[in-house]
Structures are given as C-alpha cells and as structure tokens.
C-alpha cells in the first residue's frame, strides 16, 4: 500500500487516539444504562455466562446498538468527506443538499400512505434520498456545479420536501405521527444484529473502494484542470466517488433514519484534528463513529425516563456547530 506510506505521522496519531476514544465509548455504552449490571457480569454475559435478562441487555440490546451507531457514524463520516471533497465545499454534505429531507419524505410516505414494514420504510427512504439529491444536482447544474448554488438549490428543494412531510404528518394518526417523528429525527433505539449486518457488509465492500479512490479524490480537490493534468479521468472518478458516497449514506439512513450533521461535521472535525488539507477518509470514518456513539450515549441519559432519538442531539449540537463554523470561517475571511 503506497498510499499508507504517505500518511503523515500526525494523522496516524490522531487515528489511534480516535480509535481509543471509540473503544472507550463502546465499552461505556455496553457497560452502563438503565439496567444496572456490574462490570464483571457484563463480561460474563459477553462470554455467554450471564442470566437471561443480563445477556438480553448486553448481547441483544447494547452491543448491536453501539455497533450500529459506530458503523452508521463511520458510513456517514466517509460519505460526508467524499461529498464535501467532490463539491469542494464544506456544506456540500448530504444533510445540506436535500438527501436527508428526501429520505425523510420517502420514509414518511411509506409509513403514512403505504403502511409498509421496516424494509419498505428503509427502501422508501433510500429512494427519496437519492431522488432528492439527484434533483438538486440537476437543478444546480449550469455548465458545471458550483458549491454555493448546489447548497442554495438544496435549501429550496429541502423546503418543498419538508412541506410534503408536514402534509403527510397532518394526514396521519398520532401513532403514525409518533412513529414517523421518531424515525424522522433518526434513532438507534431497538437496533439489533439485523441492522449491524447490512451496514457492516456495506462498509466491508465500500471501504476498500473508497480507499482506492482516495488518490483521485485528493487530486479532484485541486480542481478539475489540475486533476486532468495529473492524468485523472475527472468525470469518471467523480461519478464513481459520488456513487460510493450515496451508497454509504443510503445504507446509514436506511438503518438509523436521517441523522443530520454527522456527515457534515465529522470530515470537518477530522481535518481540524489532523491539520491535513485533504480528505482523510479513515479519520473521517472514525470521527463519525465517535460522534454518533457519543451522541447516542447522551440521548439515552439526558432526560431520565424519556429516551430522545439520537438525531435530536446531533441536530441541536450540529446546528450550533454549523453556525459556529460559518462565523469562524467568515471571520477569517475565507468564505
């Protein structure tokens, strides 16, 4: 792996630190919760030696939930990193360009009108998300796509999709509305091994592809002309990258609902940590995993009895972070 040799030492250090943080978060998530289990019993349950309730909590609830969070976070982190590099804009992430709102509208349509099951809801969200992102891309295309037009068209399309979602919600019963609301904000509650497996399989296939495309991705960041000069087939590389990013985001959304801001924030935070200009796909994945597992940990504990969907925590924290990011960038005069 020649690419591996060129990874700067700071990135390796950051990667190790992120991995350690993720591991610690996973251990805390599996070890603590409403159902109190002494650490020794947690280990016993993992080894298959606990009683029925303990094993249920550890093996059926907490472990797959934490792993789903880590994998979905990683998928969102990579998807966001690729989107942001291809659009050459920190705001070109799937939550801004209409993907998430399209996914939400698709899923709510499925819940309220078609009454489909879990698989149909996931499929509806993927179709909605991909459709919305494609529409935004086409509408923003005028002899090429520039970042800000993409973002602004995304805002417009998002507003229409939100109107559609709101309409569907007013036509639903409260129970459908609640089911939709929990889904809409993105939740990891009740995520089991059946969610871990597809996300893990998707990552196993797409991660190597993303790694192979890392070099063209870095060159694309320099601009189309520079990339062409370096011998990168620009359009083909861009299309492949977008396909990978859409697939990763779709898998994540189908598993956990439209969780906003992880895709936006993870690559940005990773860049700040590594102080490397280019897109660090690995670090973005780890940052995404840390963010989502951490947010889920908080969402289960902030309000005592009531468990908030994790998307509420990422939404509030992420909106504030985005506001800060914008103010910060603009104060420096970059924007």
């Amino acid at each position: 792996m020649t690419a591996a040799l060129r990874i700067p030492p700071r990135s390796v250090g950051v990667g190790l630190a992120l991995s350690a943080t993720l591991l610690a978060l996973l251990v805390v998530s599996v070890g603590t919760g409403e159902f109190e289990i002494p650490p020794g019993d947690v280990v016993a349950a993992l080894a298959g030696q606990g009683d029925r309730s303990t094993e249920f909590v550890v093996e059926t609830l907490r472990l797959p939930r934490a792993l789903t969070g880590a994998l979905v976070g990683a998928a969102l982190g990579i998807g966001g990193a690729i989107f942001q590099s291809v659009t050459r804009n920190p705001l070109g992430s799937p939550d801004i360009v209409g993907f998430m709102q399209g996914a939400a509208a698709g899923a709510v349509l499925e819940i309220v009108v078609l009454g489909g099951g879990a698989f149909a809801i996931a499929a509806g969200s993927v179709v909605g998300g991909v459709g919305a992102a494609a529409l935004v891309y086409v509408l923003a295309y005028r002899g090429g796509v520039t970042g800000y037009r993409l973002v602004l068209v995304g805002i417009g399309i998002s507003a229409m999709l939100i109107a559609v979602t709101d309409y569907l919600l007013t036509r639903s019963t409260l129970d459908q509305a609640l089911a939709a609301q929990v889904w809409l904000t993105g939740s990891l509650n009740g995520r089991g091994w059946e969610h871990v497996r597809p996300v893990a399989a998707g990552l196993a296939v797409l991660l190597p592809v993303a790694a192979l495309l890392a070099r063209p991705l870095r060159t694309l960041e320099l601009g189309d002309d520079a990339a062409r000069a370096l011998g990168v087939p620009v359009e083909r590389a861009r299309l492949a990258l977008i396909a990978v990013a859409v697939a990763l985001t779709a898998i994540a959304t189908a598993s956990a609902g439209p969780i906003v801001f992880v895709a936006l924030a993870a690559p940005q935070i990773a860049r700040r940590l590594t102080r490397v200009a280019g897109p660090g796909v690995g670090c973005a994945a780890l940052t995404g995993a840390v963010l989502l597992v951490g947010a889920d940990f908080l969402s289960q504990r902030l309000f005592g009895d009531v468990q908030l969907p994790v998307g509420v925590v990422t939404g509030v924290a992420g909106g504030a972070y985005l506001a800060w990011l914008l103010a910060h960038e603009w104060r420096r005069g970059a924007g």
């Binding site: 509420v312 939404g315 909106g319």
Partner: peptide, 8 residues
C-alpha cells in the same frame, strides 16, 4: 436546523 431539532 438547530431550533427545529430542539422543537422536535
């Protein structure tokens, strides 16, 4: 977005 998440 932050305010709407808060409302949700």
């Amino acid at each position: 977005i932050a305010l709407i998440a808060y409302v949700e």
